[in-house]
Design a protein around this nucleic acid. Structure first.
Lengths: 199, 199, 199, 199
DNA sequence: ACTGTCGGGACGACCCGTTAGT
DNA sequence: ACTAACGGGTCGTCCCGACAGT
């Protein structure tokens, strides 16, 4: 197994899938652009579906899990960590990335009704994100950073949903302004969850 | 123009597109299932793209514009109207519809980076929705239903984004629970915008 | 019978066929460009083939018969008439016409192996042309303009063939130079047939 | 590259194209008759156009270049070589080939106004033919076989054009008689170019 | 007699994920 | 890890007919 070739296949397909979706990705073309042959491709991946699963597990999953883990950090105000997360999402986006949308969201919309294998893998990622947020909030409540009446799970769900929603909307407007407005309002909402101790 | 045949093509394709996306919709198959021929299809639509545009303009657009217009109603508490809207979205969903996601959101994620014609048409719908929400909120502020410091446009953006986001997330979980949690939290947020006059 | 509509269909199709050939002519498109409907078209012509036959008989045939008839004129030197004919063919050609070739030749090459109806009609035209040349030459011999050993029929065949050949070649070169060279040589050959009486 | 399969595709398509023209050739049908599949076809040729170019370059071109090269031979009377060429063209034709016409001429009439790629490739072949004739004639003049006042280039053009023209006419008459008459007259003309040394 | 609307359906080129054999 | 081949789609084309209105 030449891990390098495999990795190149994975990454190139991820980029193309980000724009064209899974079904819109033409394995043939990507193979040609990579300068390899179909034989090589099918040496590393059973079929197109397997490749799709690998992209979700090896590229997209780690990407998001790492981001949201910061919220479940061991100490300090989790709401501040959350705000940092939201701001980093908001800030780092050049226009062209915004217009392609969030890779995770894209795949969810496209593939979850069509293929259980995709749906299950994408679901796990989302639940990990939710879980990170939830654990952070729960600790925040215990340590007095977050108001007691906050329902950690429900809020976690809402946070993830709203973030993805903001992304999706920004995509169609091809402008970060929409994204920033939605995120700013979300940050305001997050602050409203706090007791004030964190400041 | 036999509007009936045209309408049947439109509606059937809308249903299929809802599940398979625009690219995933096989015009041939749909034509067969309708019991018509390609001759008939291409009599009414230049090509697949034109059909797609027509679905956005004639089916999806009106659907959402009508829903959100209720928020821009002439009198009464707009926050209550908003809550009614959110609850109706939340309530009416049988499981299978949830797992297909919101048709508008689906198309945005799939097509806006690929085709300007789609993007522009989808953008208009979203902006109409935002506009309805914004007008409702502005009247709410004038009439004392909504707190003065609320930034109507930013909140409108946030509402639309969060709603779509909740939908998208529910889709991957194939369960309305997630949707309900996110919506419940959103409703809580909406209530927080009020002065209390509406109750 | 509105002869005007029929004539417009005929002429427009002739122009398109000149460039795209009979098979390459898309009846649908021409109909659209004429601003009429298929109903009108099929009122005047049974089908595409019938239209093709009509174009040959009513447009192409008369065009060439008229040209070559001059050679079979009643009096004077037929070789001079021939030279005038060749020069007129050579002179009147703007570049774009040259590159489309001779409508008669085009149809012969395309359709005669494929359809007997076409072949027979095109054959008649060619034989008329040959006949005109032959009659002119025969009279020329009788009246002392043309050398006695000239085989009128054989020369007539050769004249028609060479003219069409020169056209065909000029077409691929997209330049009248080739056409002029071949025609000039042909004119030289024609002069060589004379006794000198005509000058 | 399995040259055998590729070659079979090339040759079969050449035969079909000879009768039906390029546009009239149905790639699918030919593929079926060859007992291969569409996949195989598109493995060897990007698309139909590329196949057409390959047929011109690899089959038609060599065919004619070889024939006319004999005229540009190193020694002896070029007019005799020419006569041999014309007689061989005339003689070898069974009726069915005559009625299909000359493959080169057919393609010129059909494709040169429609596609530059075709036109350029066909032009090169014609110019090669002309060049061979011209070189032969020029040597003939130098060595005293051909009369000095003969304009080699103009005559070369005329020869090629007349040959192709004779072919085209024979095609529509579906009889070699026409071809033979025209060729016989052309041979007479060629003899008239000589000084008499060659005999 | 003439024209427009609606529709039929076979066919066209080309694509694409996949496999067999080496 | 690569070449050759597979074969069922995929969107779109194209010639043509049925029939109603004027």
């Amino acid at each position: 197994m030449n891990q390098d070739t495999r990795q190149r296949i994975l990454e190139k397909n991820f980029v193309v899938m980000h724009k064209h979706g899974f079904q819109g990705t033409r394995a043939d073309k990507v193979v040609k652009e990579l300068g390899i042959t179909k034989g090589a491709f099918y040496h590393y991946f059973e079929n197109k579906l397997t490749l799709g699963y690998a992209i979700v597990e090896e590229i997209i999953g780690p990407m998001y899990q790492q981001l949201w883990q910061a919220v479940a950090q061991e100490s300090g105000d989790p709401l501040l960590a959350l705000e940092r997360l939201l701001r980093s999402i908001m800030a780092q986006q050049p226009m062209e990335k915004v217009s392609l949308g969030c890779p995770l969201n894209n795949l969810i919309q496209e593939m979850s009704p069509l293929d259980e294998g995709f749906r299950l893998r994408l679901q796990r990622i989302l639940e990990d994100m939710k879980h990170s947020a939830q654990r952070g909030l729960e600790r925040g409540i215990r340590e007095g950073y977050v108001r007691e009446e906050v329902q950690a799970e429900q809020v976690a769900v809402f946070l993830v949903a709203s973030t993805e929603g903001a992304f999706g909307m920004a995509k169609v407007l091809k402008s970060p302004v929409f994204l920033e407005q939605a995120m700013e309002e979300l940050i305001g909402y997050v602050r409203g969850l706090g007791t004030g101790k964190g400041n």
